[in-house]
Design a protein around this nucleic acid. Structure first.
Lengths: 207, 207
DNA sequence: TTGAAAGTTGAACCATTATTCAACTTAGAA
DNA sequence: TTCTAAGTTGAATAATGGTTCAACTTTCAA
């Protein structure tokens, strides 16, 4: 859980200047991820965050300008984390279809291990709409690029548009919510396999 | 916009007993849908709602116990409206695949005309999680039933599970958000057509 | 016509919390 | 060791906005 919440999180003049400060800030960030993930933005309180972090209320403002600013920073950081993790996971594939399967399986596994992340990104729709939008637009773009590559290598058919990427993303997100966050009755592998079946041949008879 | 926000909205002892009361309650409901849709649950205020409705602040509490209760009622009502509308739209089809296309097209059209509805349902994830969950579980169930019917009539292949319904729903929801709410650069028909291509034959070469 | 029930009104109340700040402690460079 | 910048603390501040309520008006059945 404790991790390098990096660059984009600093707000110009509030960077810690000593090791002690750095440590405190990190404690606050980790605590905030938990608090927001558990209670949601509005139910979460600065008091709750500082309590979890084991610091005084006032220390929060040594490192952050406001509750919103912190949330926003957190969203951007989590979006980046999802991206990084996904990128690292799609290795060892010979077929573009196979790669999509791995992407979904990795996503589902990550979602299970970091349920707070998804809660926070989802709530960004209301608290920080711009970041929410960016998150999904960028994710869709990445998928779209893979689709084009797939077409180029002959694994995918032609005529695939950006909207296809949105469709695939929606599929993945909802499967992640239902079988990653809400319950774990099916394994990431099973779900990925099944979704891949749709991409491979659809659901119509014949084909 | 003004509509029959029906049964499930009454909270035991707060039903209006006269025509005047009924009218006031309806004004409040309509105003609330607008206010919540525009500002989101937390930014929305009772004052804002009563102002829009053209009633006094106190009147709100003649018909509702709390802000939360109202929101909850609204979510359930909108969920029902989406359901009803969708049901009415899937007529005139010969093929189960065709029916899914119509379902998505109708959904997208409805989303464009009632953007507030989707904002409210989405926010229910945080304000009224139980209703949010029910909404999607019920929607998924309805899709799943159609899948089974499709298999029975031979239009769809076998082996379709509930998870397939969730995948389709996710696809639809994200396409609705991107091409229904965020922008209208493509028509509902185009999007429905394209998504239907995925269901029909997937995105792989050959097949 | 009339009186009790239903509905309306908005000022006042109150609880919650984000944010500020001045006093205090610690770190670490010189 | 010493002195200043950095960091810590938590009580006080301030603003917001949901909820209550007692006085007032309208409805409508008898």
């Amino acid at each position: 859980m404790a991790t390098e919440y990096s660059e984009h999180i600093e707000s110009k003049d509030k960077q810690p200047r000593t090791a002690r400060g750095l440590k405190t800030k990190r404690k606050l960030l980790d605590a905030a991820a938990l608090e927001f993930g558990e209670k949601g933005f509005h139910e979460a309180s600065i008091t709750g965050i500082t309590q979890r972090a084991g610091t005084a209320l006032g220390s929060f403002y040594t490192y952050f300008d406001s509750k919103d600013e912190l949330f926003s920073a957190l969203v951007k950081d989590m979006s980046a984390r999802v991206k990084t993790h996904a990128a690292g996971a799609m290795t060892e594939w010979q077929d573009a279809l196979e790669r999509e399967k791995q992407a979904l399986e990795a996503f589902m596994t990550f979602a299970r291990e970091h349920k707070e992340i998804y809660r926070i990104i989802d709530e960004a729709e209301f608290v920080d709409p711009a970041s929410y939008r960016s998150h999904y637009e960028e994710t869709a773009m990445r998928i779209y690029e893979r689709l084009q590559e797939g077409t180029a290598t002959g694994d995918f058919r032609g005529g695939l548009e950006e909207a296809h990427a949105w469709a695939i993303m929606g599929m993945n997100v909802f499967l992640g919510m239902r079988y990653g966050i809400w319950s774990e009755e099916k394994s990431p592998g099973q779900i990925a396999e099944l979704a891949n079946g749709i991409l491979a041949k659809g659901i119509a008879k014949k084909g």
